[in-house]
Design a protein around this nucleic acid. Structure first.
Lengths: 339, 339
DNA sequence: ACAGGAAATTTACGCGCGTAAAGATGTTTT
DNA sequence: AAAACATCTTTACGCGCGTAAATTTCCTGT
């Protein structure tokens, strides 16, 4: 026989023999009431299973405990992993994460920001679409809501940016590839975000600095179906013939996965000692299971998510950076069979 | 010069020259007010950019326009795709979808249901963890909130179940494999949900009915890192030697992707005319980019998501099924190079 | 032009909780 | 023991909106 549901704090306070304001105080911070009082409340809590109404709570706060999490494309396991990690950290910190995916669409991202703004969130962790983002809308949003931007940089926007140092990771791979074989050409798609541009620039600079001719191959496609872009573009490239190198450095792992598929279809053996070598960037969750397993530069997921969350919380609690900060993490070479 | 922010419906009503109850009526259904009134409100809306406070709105509804979406593991692109499709349909229907991932964890799923219940949602679309689900908690939840269960069945729970017909899809693949080569053995992991069990049973039944000896191979692993399970288990199996067949039917595509990686590592050529054939199940978004591309049975994502959403809305609006319904969709054979 | 119904306005209450102020208890200090 | 402080109770208001009831204004058809 379950005790009947308790519908309000008033009712619950009466049942537990404590005044409502004190109960309210307890729910905002259990440690703020006397231990004996706390115990009485928690005993009653077990008996009656009452929870404060979230809408009533948030209506009377200028700021809620909500934290918005926005990623550009959730069907990309990289962002799914990111979201998962970040979500957990928020919950541990006593916040209420709410996850959104822009699905690669400008309008969707804009609507999400609109929606989040209405929720009076304590803060937001946002990985923007990049090129497709409505810069004005994002800027306006970031002026209203404390936002930490990650993965894809938008100049001057948000309280801080946390991401990868492409100018470290790309040369890292180039050095490896040059040391173990021919200098790589660069395979990219139409850049969806600044990372793509930075990586290409890093490639060009590093190659030039090492006395090699940079060779940049561009394949078509401007949506988030990277594998397909790499596959279809890869077929065309292979049929037209690569420039004079047997090594292809793809601007990201998903593109590389598609390209590997194209290589397979054309009967090319990929890997050291094979017909050509292929490398990627990011250490995508599935990169270790491609055939051959993909040599790549691992982004430091853990560090990025940890610092993004920490920075946001320090901003929220007021201890945060008054001046905008940019935190970059280096990559780690992951040597597998593909290059 | 932006006009100052409007903070309440009271204020907005005054600015637009309409009474507050009428404005309230408008926001609940713009078509419920006279066209001339509607126009005046919308003109004012453009000038002042007012939006009703979501917390105040929901506090005064017994039921909100929120729709909870729960998936067991968002880092699986299958569920990410599912979530995306379902999300869009909810928005189009004027609802407010809120996405949750159980991350493969029993406690997380339970907490999510708890959270959702507090939000007074109009309904919920839920793909349960399966074996790891707290059946009692899910049952209790479904008694309180109209829920359509999809992908993974829980007997008797929810207003309806929408999923795949494993007893159609598995024999479909078996017939194809038998017609083009040797009868397949069955590669499975420890079942995380009923689908896995049904597929194995379907395999056994169909093989027996066709006069073939069913051969079931089980690999270790009880988390959601299916690729790793398929890879590591696959290595062990290959080293121990497969039973007398060259054809492996994997219980899902992610497992198959891992197994393909194991085959590659052992130097086995996969595909028709190769050392062995590998088939999967689901038509995972990345299945077409494996090497070789994976022959599989496609789940009808579109049909499942469409029917799940439709069923939920018909239940919400009261036109729905009073008796619990189970809707199953057949699979479609996707013939690629791996088998 | 007038009746009759549709739609808008006015007025009022309630939702469940945050929060402030004043006073009453309880606990610790010297 | 009394003083000094921490904590609780009582009382009361406000948040922004849904919604009901009674009244007034508007639109339509004759």
């Amino acid at each position: 026989m379950q005790p009947r549901a308790v519908r309000s704090m008033e009712e619950f306070a009466a049942l537990s023999g404590i005044s409502r304001p004190t109960v309210s105080k307890y729910f905002n911070d259990p440690a703020s009431v006397r231990p004996s009082t706390r115990e009485r409340i928690e005993t009653a809590l077990e008996r009656y299973d009452y929870r404060p109404n979230i809408y009533a709570i948030n209506q009377n706060r200028k700021l809620t405990k909500n934290v918005g999490i926005v990623v550009p494309y959730l069907a990309d396991p990289f962002f799914a992993e990111m979201a998962r990690t970040v979500e957990r950290r928020c919950i541990e910190a006593g916040y209420w994460p709410i996850l959104f995916s822009s699905h690669g669409e400008r309008d969707t991202e804009r609507n999400i920001l609109d929606t989040i703004a209405r929720m009076k969130p304590a803060g937001v962790l946002m990985a923007p679409l990049g090129r497709a983002s409505d810069r004005t809308a994002v800027e306006r949003f970031c002026r209203e809501v404390p936002t930490v931007v990650f993965d894809s940089h938008i100049e001057g926007v948000g309280e801080a940016f946390v991401g990868s140092d492409n100018f470290q990771s790309v040369p890292l791979m180039i050095d490896y590839l040059c040391a173990t074989g021919m200098p790589p050409c660069w395979l990219e798609m139409q850049p969806v975000n600044p990372n793509a541009n930075k990586r290409r620039d890093a490639y060009r600079t590093a190659m030039t600095a090492r006395g090699h001719e940079p060779r940049i191959l561009r394949v078509d496609g401007d949506d988030w179906d990277f594998e397909r872009i790499g596959y279809e573009g890869g077929l065309r490239l292979l049929d037209a013939g690569l420039p004079d190198t047997d090594t292809v450095f793809c601007s990201n792992d998903r593109l590389a996965i598609g390209f590997l598929s194209a290589c397979y279809e054309r009967g090319l053996r990929v890997g050291r000692g094979g017909d050509l070598r292929v490398a990627g960037h990011d250490d995508h969750p599935f990169a270790r299971y491609t055939c051959p397993p993909l040599t790549t530069v691992a982004q430091d997921y853990e560090a990025i998510s940890l610092h993004a969350v920490r920075t946001l919380f320090s901003v929220i609690t007021g201890k945060g950076p008054q001046v905008r900060k940019e935190i970059l993490f280096g990559g780690r070479l992951v040597e597998r069979a593909s290059a």
